[in-house]
Design a protein around this nucleic acid. Structure first.
Length: 951
RNA sequence: GCUCGAGUGGUGGAAUUGGUAGACACGUUGGACUUAAAAUCCAAUGGCCAUUGUGGCCGUGCGGGUUCAAGUCCCGCCUCGAGUACCA
């Protein structure tokens, strides 16, 4: 009887679906385990073999945990809002919902084929109104909250209103807009309702603000940095301008410190934690205010009566942020970003031409250019001077493109002796470099070693260390009112508006230009039908095309403009939410996905708590994975979620790359040369479809000619009668003809082979090339496994049989726990080879083996389980746990330098018992001893311990 | 430039805490079974040298170091990959 994988797989997929084998209960006597794969965007291209890698790993672990007696939640869904469906709609007019539904259908077929143990009864789709109702609900909740820095948590906005009524905002320590003015309780009482709303907007966790965006007038849309090449749009080559637009923002910066602290409590990969840490970018230092010295031009400067020079900077001073306030006496110039707003105001007439030319030159360079090219030093002198806060000495003010407008204050105090970039700048422009470090030679380079800093030539700081001098400087600055200590983050608030159609509508309408939330009882606010998915002619987002998109004063969506008094209807928000909105809380929604009274029942989340294992790509490090942590912390603060971090453990699966194949066409003739014949030839490589290549890189020439008829008359120059292709590792893509679909593999080898092979390819986290040829190895393993079960009987297993089994159990279990699936597949292969050689047919050995294999090859395992006479699905079987014994155990270590006779007590596997042997050992040398067993063994003894059995 | 990761046979990759480097698999070569092919099974397979018996030398990107012992630890380089917002 052959191993008929197609038949077996169809049978069990059907069985699992009919018996709802993998549906999880929201309460159970068993301990809970939540294993989650990142849900996919259902693209039109379907899955290729690279996509399921993480799903397979997660599924293996989920099945393993079920066998271990856990109540496992293993759901799947779709992140189904997104740009491709919208662009397809723009081209064809087909509604994105239709495109999306078709893509999802295809995804589901492909996923089902692979035998995942997903609980499909919990499927979510972010574009489903029943789902995005709760995305909108979270948005309203954010709007209804402010961040109390003293309590370090989000609180209802009503608390803040109460505070304002009582004592104004003087004592309120909140995350809020920088330009928030002070007001008293009396002021608040006199504010109009509109003023109050405006003021509260400065505190809410989601708020409207003018954000600078890359606006492309021709496309009528905002572009990401990635979509801009050399100052014009990647698509169409239209000009792009920086423009301020009113956008919804998320006050993620309020959570900067907690997002940082939380990283220490979760088991995520270090590189990913590093990426988030760097993204949040905490640095300790000080804000320092430098007065601009009056000269003939300074009359033009505005003067201001503001009292707090730090909150609302005077226009005749320059604020800088520095991490090295201790080097304040080393300042010999200042550098502003060329885009800094003060540049135009302070530049002297004599320097005007040079500065303007420099700014123009800078504007043409992309940030990437500015970054890649650190060797070219450029800048210009503005002609203006600032005053040193302590020495009162004049400091020349320069502009330079090594200073970025977007970080800190867009200005730096330059300390050339302590910072290499400042040093290089000073050398290049021949600016004085004062030395403020005791005993340090700065004639060649700057000295930036904080730990070994002793300050000199610095007035009241002389002789102090970095730490002491920093504290002292900040104290002195605070005394003269020209600075204060400050923790700065590079993290910035996230823009939350998109000028798109295919996204969640904001539950927002406007009264007198001020945003109002729709009553939650009326959610979801569903997307309107539009004629066109492009921006309107007046440049409004696509929702502006809707015939009806307004709200009446009773809080009901207007269905017919004609019936309602125009005075009581209000416009709805035209922007939609970004892609990451729907993915920022989906993991919680899976816990209670059909609840339409609440985002999820408290009992449900109290049971499931959080994700135990999350598997997905590292490309989400500073996007989805940061925003989700932010939302989760917010939901935690507001009592909606019981855990502050949503995922305890996270694994980044690596990418599976394609192995492209090339043929080599001679440039001057119609000959195509095999790979080994290229010496001295002038050839151009041409992609060949990977399905035309066999395991030994030989091309099927006739099939190639058929596939690319333009080469049907070409002469193929063979080596040893074969055409050998060249190979190159590239990303899998249609254009490189290296895409391999899981469907093809499943048809030829079965889903179990594919699952095993994807795991066998290499470590989960590593990126590795796909090569279909290698799948025969794991496929023949399955066939051998099948054969083992053909002659099953009830004989008592031999010691050898049991040893093989126990060895396998121990290794496989340890490997699964360590997510080292590749080595466990090898262990299976060895096991089956050994049992085959031993002619083992014992049920006592093969029954546990079937369970052991089942996470990897579930269909095969189910079939074998049935063959063993079990009526229940293997999904309910318990993982075999045996007391595994150490193969060899030394009871005592001996010193490396020992010379002479020693007795070793060895504990042997299984039934072999214990044995004592005597051996003569030499200092520093390995010793071989012979064991008297049923089969004699050699044991290598090394100084200090016993290592291994041989033979 | 910075941050993180990785370099082991023809290929993908093994190698608990430093302890017989190359497990397992692909490929290749030879053999068995076949009219033949496929499938299956058996054997060999890091390099070099020697030899017909067992043997010797060199080998984990490069150069040093620690150690009885280094793929593994330390120092200095090189190459490749990923991320990136010159973060003051």
């Amino acid at each position: 009887m052959d191993y008929n994988f197609n038949e077996i797989e169809d049978k069990w997929q059907k069985y699992w679906a009919e018996n709802r084998t993998f549906e999880a209960l929201n309460d159970s006597e068993k301990p809970k385990y939540y294993a989650l794969s990142m849900f996919p965007y259902p693209s039109g291209a379907g899955l290729h073999v690279g996509h399921p890698l993480g799903y397979i790993a997660c599924d293996i672990y989920a099945r393993y945990k079920r066998h271990k007696g856990f109540n496992v939640l293993h759901p799947m869904g779709y992140d189904s809002f997104g740009l491709p469906a919208e662009q397809y709609a723009i081209q064809t007019g087909q509604h994105p919902a239709i495109t999306t539904a078709a893509n999802i259908k295809r995804y589901r077929e492909q996923l089902d084929q692979l035998g995942f143990s997903f609980d499909w009864s919990r499927e979510v789709r972010t574009s489903d109104p029943n789902y995005y109702k709760w995305t909108q609900w979270v948005f309203i909740k954010l709007f209804d909250s402010w961040y109390n820095n003293d309590a370090a948590r989000a609180e209802p906005i009503q608390h803040l209103v109460t505070l304002f009524e009582k004592e104004g905002n003087a004592k309120v320590n909140a995350a809020c807009d920088d330009d928030t003015p002070d007001f008293s309780a009396a002021d608040w009482g006199q504010f109009s309702d509109t003023d109050k709303q405006r003021m509260l907007l400065k505190y809410r966790l989601t708020y409207l603000a003018d954000a600078e965006v890359n606006w492309c007038p021709a496309l009528g849309t905002v572009l990401a940095n990635d979509e801009i090449v050399n100052g014009v749009s990647e698509r169409g080559g239209h000009p792009v301008i920086r423009k301020k637009m009113t956008q919804w923002m998320m006050r993620i910066t309020a959570y900067a410190q907690r997002l940082l602290d939380g990283l220490e409590t979760i088991d995520w990969p270090q590189p990913l934690k590093d990426a988030q840490t760097n993204w949040i970018g905490r640095s300790e230092g000080a804000f320092i205010s430098f007065k601009i010295i009056s000269n003939s031009d300074v009359g033009a400067l505005e003067t201001s009566n503001a009292t707090d020079t730090l909150q609302t900077p005077l226009s005749n001073s320059i604020d800088v942020f520095t991490t090295r306030p201790d080097t304040i006496f080393g300042v010999s110039f200042m550098t502003l970003a060329p885009e800094h707003e003060l540049v135009a105001k302070i530049t002297t007439p004599t320097q005007k031409a040079e500065v303007t030319a420099y700014i123009e030159a800078t504007a043409k360079r992309s940030e990437r250019d500015r970054m890649a090219d650190v060797k070219t030093i450029s800048g210009a002198f503005t002609g203006a001077y600032a005053e040193h806060p302590f020495t009162k000495a004049p400091i020349p003010i320069w502009i330079g493109d090594y200073v970025l407008a977007s970080y800190g204050t867009g200005a730096v105090m330059a300390v050339p002796c302590g910072d290499q970039r400042d040093y290089d700048f000073a050398k290049h422009f021949d600016i004085h470099i004062p030395n403020i470090f005791e005993g340090i030679d700065i004639s060649k380079e700057a000295f930036a070693d904080k730990a070994n800093t002793v300050i000199a030539n610095s007035g009241f700081l002389n002789g102090l260390s970095y730490k002491e001098a920093t504290t002292k400087t900040i104290a002195e600055l605070e005394m003269i009112g020209q600075g204060k200590g400050k923790v700065n983050y590079r993290l910035r608030d996230a823009v939350f508006s998109r000028q798109r159609y295919w996204g969640e509508p904001f539950p927002v309408y406007y009264v007198n230009g001020l945003p109002q939330m729709i009553d939650a009882a009326h959610l979801p606010l569903e997307l309107p039908e539009v004629e066109k998915y492009l921006p309107t002619e007046t440049g409004e987002p696509p929702l502006g095309n809707a015939a009806i998109w307004a709200w009446d004063s009773l809080g009901k969506k207007v269905v017919d403009n004609g019936e309602v008094d125009n005075m009581t209807i209000f416009p709805l928000e035209l922007n939609t939410m970004p892609g990451w909105a729907g993915s920022s809380q989906y993991f919680n929604r899976y816990m209670d996905p059909h609840n339409d009274q609440a985002i999820y029942a408290q009992e449900a989340i109290n049971y499931w708590q959080d994700v135990d294992l999350y598997i997905g790509g590292s490309e989400h490090a500073t996007g989805h994975l940061l925003y989700s942590r932010f939302w989760q912390k917010f939901l935690f603060d507001r009592g909606v979620a019981p855990k502050e971090e949503f995922a305890q453990k996270l694994i980044n699966q690596g990418m599976i790359t394609g192995t492209s194949a090339y043929v080599y066409k001679d440039l001057d003739s119609n000959q195509i040369f095999s790979k080994g014949l290229l010496e001295g030839k002038n050839v151009i490589p041409i992609h060949a479809d990977v399905s035309l290549i066999d395991a030994s890189d030989q091309l099927n020439v006739e099939a190639f000619k058929k596939w690319q008829p333009e080469y049907k008359d070409a002469e193929f120059i063979l080596e040893d009668g074969k055409y050998i292709v060249g190979r190159e590792i590239e990303k899998m893509s249609k254009s490189k003809y290296n895409v391999v679909n899981p469907d093809q593999i499943c048809e030829a080898y079965g889903a179990d082979s594919l699952r095993l092979y994807e795991m066998f390819l290499g470590p989960l986290e590593q990126s590795k090339p796909w090569n279909t040829a290698g799948i025969t190895g794991v496929h023949s393993f399955l066939k051998k496994l099948w054969k083992l079960y053909l002659n099953i009987d009830d004989t008592v297993p031999t010691g050898e049989n049991l040893k093989t089994l126990h060895k396998t159990i121990k290794k496989v279990e340890a490997d699964i726990e360590a997510f080292s699936f590749n080595t466990s597949v090898s262990t299976f292969m060895i096991c089956v080879n050994e049992l085959t050689a031993q002619k083992c047919a014992s049920r006592a050995v093969l029954e546990p083996l079937a369970i052991l294999v089942s996470p990897y090859a579930p269909h095969m395992a189910e079939e074998l389980w049935e063959k063993l006479g079990h009526s229940e699905s293997i999904a309910y079987a318990t993982f075999p746990v045996f007391e595994t014994q150490y193969l060899v155990e030394s009871t005592k270590e001996y010193p490396i330098s020992f010379n002479g006779k020693l007795r070793f007590k060895l504990e042997l596997p299984l039934t072999m018992g214990k044995e004592e042997i005597e051996a003569t050992v030499m200092a520093h040398e390995k010793t071989q001893v012979q064991l008297q067993g049923r089969t004699p063994k050699k044991v290598i003894v090394v100084p200090g311990k016993i290592v291994n059995i041989v033979g």
